[in-house]
Design a binder for these strands. Structure first.
Length: 367
DNA sequence: AAGACGTACAACCGCAGTATG
DNA sequence: TCATACTGCGGTTGTACGTCT
């Protein structure tokens, strides 16, 4: 045991990193790997302690991290897992590809916690704040069951996170997403991280977790931000109905706009060119992620099955709201707002159908 | 225009766990 | 078994920036 008093050392720089420092650190790690963090600063010519270098790398410079706004789905995941795990940010982070625990923690503290509070939900207990009975809707047995389940899940998720760390397993989102929404895909990923969500939430528990009430409220809160431009869509009368109103056709027809950044609303757009400029828009969000169909650019009537299990995802363009989408943008994103991805680890690229299934899987847990 | 205030986020700090000799 | 080095984690702080008065 013991800790290294690196910050006590004289002459080491503290505070914000400069671009030059970032460049030095990046260049060194790219060339040599980080190796021993303690030895790194001297080798890289940095007046920083190893700990500071490590944090900078992990939370900011690492190439495989996603920065920018959190998608609705990511928010849901955070809330869900926070209800189960509490402030176990690292465990939560294992379920949000490319997000760091620090970023999630900050996001929770600055956004989600406040929003839950405004919704009348205690962000610590995930229960409604004002309850004349002094408890939530569940009875003592439910609460006990919930507590038991939460403990069980907590232990399991942490074990899973540890396994992932130890095995340096890189999750495979396309496959895992299919699993998470209950696809029939055969899976060897019983140890993959998202499979936990699958097993945790698709296998109906005896009682409905309290956190689901929070999610339901969250869903209503967020979908309530949608405004419909025309009347030809079902008017949302309840949170669940409003969710159903967000059907792909409505999205495709551009019948409503949002006043907040929405994660991924249209499914997948297939572009004929890798630069996306010859985009032939095609959204078919009525299909699951593993059964999407692409329209040929040359012949829009010709459909070609897209083998999502295949390797060629280079032509798939998805709207990366986290990086490109700004607030107050309309749902019909211009092509410039589309970002190319090889579909490797982009959580926001799930289809609406998959998104809907995700919600259904959570909200239909009542036994 | 300028100071006060609030917000968001990067970074710091210290504790705890693990690895190693 | 123990001491030390190292890493991971979560709470907290510092600061830049935007908004308000």
């Amino acid at each position: 045991m013991g800790r290294s008093p690196c910050f006590d050392k004289v002459g080491l720089k503290k505070g914000p990193w400069t671009p030059e420092e970032d460049q030095k650190l990046l260049a060194f790690i790219e060339q040599h790997g980080h190796g021993s963090w303690r030895a790194l600063p001297a080798k890289a010519g940095l007046q920083r302690c190893g700990k500071s270098c490590r944090l900078r790398w992990i939370n900011y410079l690492r190439p495989d991290i996603k920065r920018g706004m959190f998608s609705l789905r990511e928010e849901q995941t955070i809330i869900q897992l926070h209800a189960l795990l509490g402030n176990k940010w690292s465990a939560i982070a294992t379920h949000l590809p490319k997000r760091t625990d620090n970023e999630i923690k900050n996001y929770w503290n600055t956004h989600l916690k406040k929003r839950l509070s405004k919704m009348g939900i205690d962000p610590v207990t995930h229960k409604p704040k004002t309850d004349p009975l002094g408890s939530t809707t569940g009875n003592a047995k439910d609460a006990a069951n919930l507590s038991h389940m939460a403990q069980w899940e907590s232990a399991r998720l942490e074990a899973e996170a540890r396994f992932v760390r130890e095995s340096k397993l890189v999750s495979n989102p396309p496959q895992n997403l299919q699993i998470a929404v209950g696809s029939s895909s055969s899976s060897s990923s019983s140890t993959s991280v998202p499979s936990l969500i699958n097993t945790a939430f698709l296998a109906p528990p005896k009682t409905r977790p309290q956190c689901l009430e929070v999610l339901k409220a969250w869903q209503g809160e967020v979908t309530g931000l949608f405004t419909f431009k025309t009347d030809n869509l079902q008017s949302p009368t309840s949170t669940l109905n409003s969710m159903e109103s967000m059907l792909p056709n409505g999205l495709i027809n551009d019948n409503f706009v949002t006043n907040f950044p929405v994660p991924y609303k249209g499914g997948v757009e297939y572009c004929s060119g890798s630069d996306g400029k010859n985009k032939e828009t095609l959204l078919d969000t009525t299909m699951g992620l593993n059964e999407m169909v692409a329209w040929s650019h040359q012949d829009p009537h010709k459909k070609e099955n897209m083998n999502m299990e295949g390797n060629n995802y280079s032509d798939i363009m998805v709207w990366d709201s986290c990086n490109d989408h700004q607030q107050n943008s309309s749902i019909a994103a211009p092509c410039e707002n589309l970002k190319e991805t090889n579909y490797d680890g982009d959580y926001s690229s799930s289809s609406f159908e998959e998104y809907k299934n995700y919600w259904n899987s959570i909200l239909n847990l009542e036994s």
